[in-house]
């Protein structure tokens, strides 16, 4: 097995082809937004807070900073092998990402 170093990942953007990982942003595992009009607290928590965190191939969201488009990828979480990448369709969902990750990128003073 490879010794893992995140810096060395190569990901194929469906528009831009294979790119170094720092030209992209990984937004984590994809999840399913509840379809119900009023999900139960349990369903909501599952969607917002819980992730499978697999050892193996997982489906995740990536943002290409070159073409500024989102795509989905299947990546092995240990070997970093990217099995496939594709632009999402209506069946996929950004899922329970809340603002916390976006907000965490806003380091420094928060002045309007």
């Amino acid at each position: 097995m490879w010794n893992i170093a995140d810096m060395s990942l190569l990901v194929t953007c469906p528009n831009c082809g294979p790119r170094e990982v720092e030209e992209l942003r990984c937004a984590g595992e994809s999840t399913k937004r509840p379809a119900a009009a009023a999900p139960s607290q349990r369903e909501l928590n599952e969607y917002v807070y819980f992730r499978d965190n697999v050892w193996g191939v997982q489906r995740e969201w990536w943002f290409c900073r070159v073409c500024e488009e989102w795509f989905l990828a299947e990546r092995h979480t240990y070997t970093n092998e990217v099995v496939r990448t594709w632009h999402p369709g209506p069946a996929d969902s950004p899922g329970g990402r809340d603002g916390s990750e976006a907000a965490s990128q806003q380091e420094g003073a928060q002045v309007l």
Binding site: A102, Q105, Q110
Partner: peptide
Amino acid sequence: TSTGADAVYQWFTW
């Protein structure tokens, strides 16, 4: 917000 421009753009497009 001044620091949120990129995050909001990515949020919307996501």
